Every structure is written in C-alpha cells, then in structure tokens.
Simulated scan of single mutants.
Amino acid sequence: MKVLKINASASRQTSLSRVEVDRVISKLLVKYPSAEIIDRDVAYSNLPFPNDKFVEAIFHKGPLNEEQRLLTKVSDQLVDELLESEILVIGAPMYNFTIPASLKAYFDLVARAGKTYQYNEQGYPLGLVEGKKAIIVITTGGVPLGSPMDFSKQYITAFLGFLGIKNLTFIELDENRFKYEEKRKKATEKLASILD
C-alpha cells in the first residue's frame, strides 16, 4: 500500500496542519505498518504554474518532442504518484479564505485529460482516479468552515470528486485561535473513528 502525504503549509516549524498530517500518517502506519509513504511537500517542491506551452503540450496529439516532454515531466510525476497511491493525506491550511497557491498549483498539474479525468460523449466529466480514500486536514485561524468565507472545503470536495475521489474525510481544525481545545478533541475522536 502507498500513502500520498501532501503538505501545503508555508510554515515548516509552527504549522498546525503539518502536525495533524503527521498524526494521521502515524495512525495509518500503526494500522498498515508496511505502507510506503510518498512525501510530497507542495509548498517546497517549486511546482511550476501552467503556461501556454504546458497547456499546448498536455493537449498535443501524438508523440511529444523533447521540449514538451520536459514541460510535462513534473506533472507526469505528480500524476503517477497520485495514481499509485491508495490513500491521500492532504494538509490544507486556509490562506485568505481558500487553499494555498501551492496546493492549487498541484491540483492544476494533476488535472490531466485522459489521465485523471475525461469527458463522455455527452460532455459529462468522468473521474479516472477511483477507489482511493482521501483524508484532508483543514486548519483555519478564525474562519469557521462552512461559513460564507470558507472557499476551501467545498472546492477541495468538488475538485477531488471531479477526479473520481469521492471517499473523503475532513479533519477540521478551524477557528483554532479561539476554539483550539474543542476542535482538537473533535479531530482526535474523528481520526480514531475513521481508522478503527
């Protein structure tokens, strides 16, 4: 079994989402001691933002030239990691009401027509990344999840669903500046329940 561990926090030392992601991974390793962890720190992977040449390359019909292969190399690697993994653990701190730019860049790079999604003849999207479980840690300083200022949880749900990942569990540590102990208790209980 492979577990894809994705961190998106810019803070390496004081990030609550990183701490919680590590807790999830530790619990998974107790349950699946032989699991292989793929560590993908999108905040420090220097992920490229898609540009016109990248878009042209990923929609190119036929063999790619050398330049196109280089342009799609990172995206191909990320897609392979995603497809090979059975469980995703995603740390998604809220930055200015939504996900960090690094996580959005990651999502843009793994959304690949013919690899992670496709459209049927009626134009309906079909996710190709099926049979996976995702555990998503969302942390916020003060914004309540589900409030009008929350543009994280619904977006993550929609995007992963678009790829075919429907088995989602959210570990919610929102409003942690005001309700940390309460939210920590609930997160601990939820993590225990989903891994039992």
Rank of each mutant, 00 (worst) to 15 (best):
R112E: 05
F151K: 01
E182A: 10
A43M: 09
I171G: 05
K185G: 03
K104H: 07
L82T: 14
Q77E: 11
L78C: 12
T188S: 14
N46K: 12
I136M: 05
I87D: 08
K5N: 09
G146N: 01
Y117W: 02
Y44P: 03
D196C: 04
Q77V: 02
Y180A: 13
D108W: 04
Q77F: 09
A113H: 05
K53G: 02
Y155P: 14
D196F: 13
N167R: 13
K27C: 15
T188M: 04
K186E: 09
G131A: 09
E130L: 10
K53F: 04
Y106W: 13
L128C: 09
V89D: 05
K53N: 13
S9C: 13
P50I: 04
Y180E: 12
L16K: 10
D22Q: 15
F59R: 13
G141L: 01
L109A: 03
E130D: 00
K61P: 00
P33I: 06
Y106R: 00
Y117A: 01
T188F: 07
P48T: 11
L88K: 00
K5V: 08
G62F: 06
N51M: 02
L47M: 04
I38C: 13
G91N: 08
E121H: 07
N167Y: 00
E182K: 13
A192G: 02
A113T: 03
E81L: 04
K115Q: 11
L29P: 03
A113V: 04
Q68C: 07
I138C: 11
N167P: 11
K153A: 10
K27Q: 14
S26Q: 15
H60W: 10
K73A: 15
A92Q: 03
K179Q: 14
T188Q: 12
G146Q: 02
F178G: 10
G164H: 12
Y119R: 02
L71T: 07
R18V: 03
T169E: 13
R112Q: 11
G123F: 03
I58T: 08
N7T: 15
S9D: 03
S85R: 03
L173W: 09
E189I: 06
A92G: 00
K73W: 04
F54W: 13
V74F: 04
I6V: 15
D108Q: 01
N176M: 11
E84F: 02
A105M: 08
R18P: 05
R184T: 07
S11A: 14
N120K: 01
T140N: 02
N167S: 08
Q13L: 14
T157L: 07
N167A: 15
T140C: 00
I99L: 13
N46V: 01
G142W: 06
Q68I: 07
N96L: 06
K179P: 06
D80S: 11
L173T: 08
L29S: 13
K179L: 15
V24A: 14
I138K: 06
F49D: 08
I165G: 09
V24T: 14
R184P: 01
I58K: 10
E67F: 14
